[in-house]
């Protein structure tokens, strides 16, 4: 075999790989558009707030993905729906506004695609981040206390302090990272129907 032939084969097969997956994939999922809900005038999936978009990066950087997935599978061959991980399976359109779009690799913990429905209250989510065992004494989810700071309670009442007893008059306050992460977790819900994924 001559080197020119070899070079040709390599380029042709890599082109095939690339065109076959990314270019075809682009025509299929790269051009998806959100659906406009005529009643609410909001798009589905909804556009997340700026805070939630920052939170997506915090979620990635804290490595939550090492234990939590972001993809609910359908009823055939998986128990995701019966576990209550979501009202329907996840489809490509759900990731439309995710930046970065992530799926996760392992389910040591539960799927979080709909955690905004399961734990809608921001205080509960904050408490879980501070110490998961406050909500579930058996929890194996690691605590993330570095997302919080202890501060002496000022004269004005801090609205976002965790509802925990103070120590040396110090309250536990979420840092910006914790606030954005919670906003992101709250933005995770697929309770809207899509043409390709109706809610039964």
């Amino acid at each position: 075999m001559k080197s020119g032939q070899a070079l040709f084969i390599v380029f042709a097969s890599l082109l095939f790989t690339w065109a076959g997956q990314i270019a075809l994939g682009y025509f299929q999922v790269g051009r998806l558009e959100p659906i406009l809900n005529e009643e609410t005038n909001y798009t589905e999936p909804p556009v997340p707030s700026g805070l939630a978009q920052t939170g997506a990066r915090v979620f990635a950087s804290q490595g939550c993905l090492e234990c939590h997935s972001l993809s609910v599978r359908g009823p055939s061959g998986s128990a995701d729906l019966t576990r209550g991980w979501g009202p329907r399976r996840t489809v490509p359109r759900d990731y439309l506004f995710r930046e970065p779009a992530l799926i996760g690799s392992s389910r040591i913990g539960s799927d979080l695609s709909n955690i905004g429905l399961r734990i809608p209250d921001s205080k509960d989510l904050m408490l879980h981040l501070w110490n998961p065992r406050l909500r579930n004494s058996n929890s194996t989810c690691p605590p993330h206390p570095w997302l919080f700071e202890r501060k002496v309670a000022g004269p004005k009442i801090e609205n976002d302090a965790l509802p925990l007893p103070t120590k040396d008059w110090k309250q536990i306050l979420p840092k910006y990272q914790a606030k954005s992460l919670v906003a992101y977790l709250q933005s995770l819900h697929s309770d809207y129907a899509l043409p390709e994924a109706p809610i039964k």
Binding site: G25, Y26, G30, P92, L96, A101
Partner: peptide
């Protein structure tokens, strides 16, 4: 250049 789910496909690739 890649929106949404295309990013996930690209990660697998």
């Amino acid at each position: 250049l890649a929106p949404g789910a295309l990013q996930i496909m690209m990660q697998f690739v």
